Amino acid sequence: MTLSFKTKDRHGYSVQFSPYISSRLACCTSQYYGIAGRGTLFILDVRSGSIEPVRIYEWNDGLFDVTWAENNENVVVAGAGDGSLLLYDVKNPKVNSVSWSQTRDENLIVTGSWDKLIKLWSIDNPKSLSTYTGHEGIVYSVIWSPRIPGCFASASGDGTVRLWDRRTSYPQTVISAHQMEVLTCDWNKYDQNILYTGSVDCSIRGWDVRNTKQCICEMRGHRFAVRRIKTSPFNGNTLASCSYDFTVRTWDVRQPHAMEIIEHHKEFVYGLDFNLHIPGQIVDCAWDELIHIHKPKSL
C-alpha cells in the first residue's frame, strides 16, 4: 500500500524519516521548482492510514535539504537557497538559528554549497567552526560516516568524491568517481570502507575507500541523472536511488541491473529515504508535489 501527501504548489527536494519516531518524517520543498519564491518545510505523521501535517514552516527562499538532529527527536535542520542553515524545534514553531545542512556526530553539522565550500557548524555557535576547500565544482552532497567518528564524504560537480577528517582542512582521499557531475553519495551501513556514488552519467558506483583506483561495482539503468542514493539500514547489499527520469529504483549491489523500477511520479524525483524502524519501507518526494511512503516488493 502506498500512502501519499500533496505538498500543494511546493516541489519536493529532500525527505527524511525521523530516527526516533517510526511514523514521522520531514520534507523540504521549494516554490517554482526552486528557481524563485519561498520554501516550505513539512513535518508529517502517518496516522490511521494517512499522512497528516504536524507542523508547516515557511521560509522566504527555497529549501533544498533536510535532516533530523541525532541528539534531539524534536529538532530538524533545513538548508535554504539564501545560504541559511535553519534549525526548527517541532515542539516550538520558530526558527532557532541560521547556512546549509546535513548532520551527525553529536551537535555538529556539516554543510556543502554552491560556493564549492564545505563548512562545519555547531548548533551552539552561529559561526562556522571550520571551512574545507578543494572542490572545483558545486558541492551537491555531504554525509557523515555512520561508523568512523569525525569522517565525512562529499560529492561534487567536479566529478570527484572526497573523504575528510573534520580535524584537518584538506581531504584524506580524492576519488575520481565519474567523468561527469557527482550529485549524491552514501556510506554502506555495514562496512565502513564502502561508499556509493550517483552521477549525471546515469550510473551508480561502489568504492572501497582503501583502494580507489577502480570501482568495486557499477549499476546502470536510469535514463537520466541519479539525484539521490540511499543505502539500506537492514541489508548491506541493498540500496535505493531516485532520478530525473521520474523513477525510484532498488538495487542489489552485486547485480548490474535494478531489482525493481517504481514509476509513481510524473516529475523529477529528488528526495529519498529508508525508514530506520520499518524494514523495507521508503519515502520519496518529487517536483510533482507528491510525497509517497511505500514498501517496494523487492525489499
Rank of each mutant, 00 (worst) to 15 (best):
N71E: 09
D273H: 02
E136D: 09
G137K: 02
R220H: 08
P149H: 12
P233F: 05
D45C: 11
W114Y: 09
Y170D: 13
F42R: 00
Q16V: 13
D284I: 01
F274N: 01
P146R: 10
N235C: 10
W100F: 15
I293Q: 00
K297A: 05
Y33H: 13
S156A: 15
V15W: 03
G221I: 11
C242D: 00
G236C: 10
N211A: 15
R167V: 07
P256K: 08
K266R: 01
T133G: 06
M219Y: 12
I291T: 02
L120I: 15
I175V: 15
L41K: 04
S130H: 05
S241H: 07
Q192E: 15
K295R: 14
E73F: 13
I262C: 07
I216K: 09
G159N: 07
N71V: 12
W207S: 03
P149Y: 14
E218T: 15
R38C: 13
Y170C: 12
Y20G: 01
V226C: 00
D208S: 07
R220N: 10
L117S: 09
R55K: 13
S122T: 10
Q281L: 06
I194S: 05
L299G: 04
I35C: 10
D82T: 06
S298Y: 03
N96K: 13
V283W: 01
I35Y: 11
H178P: 08
E136L: 14
K127S: 07
P171W: 06
L290R: 06
D245G: 04
Y270M: 12
F246M: 05
K189I: 15
V77P: 02
C28E: 05
A78G: 07
I43C: 10
L129Q: 10
F5D: 00
H222V: 12
F246D: 04
I123L: 08
R223A: 11
V76G: 01
I291S: 01
L86G: 03
M1Q: 13
V54T: 12
D89S: 02
W251S: 07
S232T: 08
I148P: 04
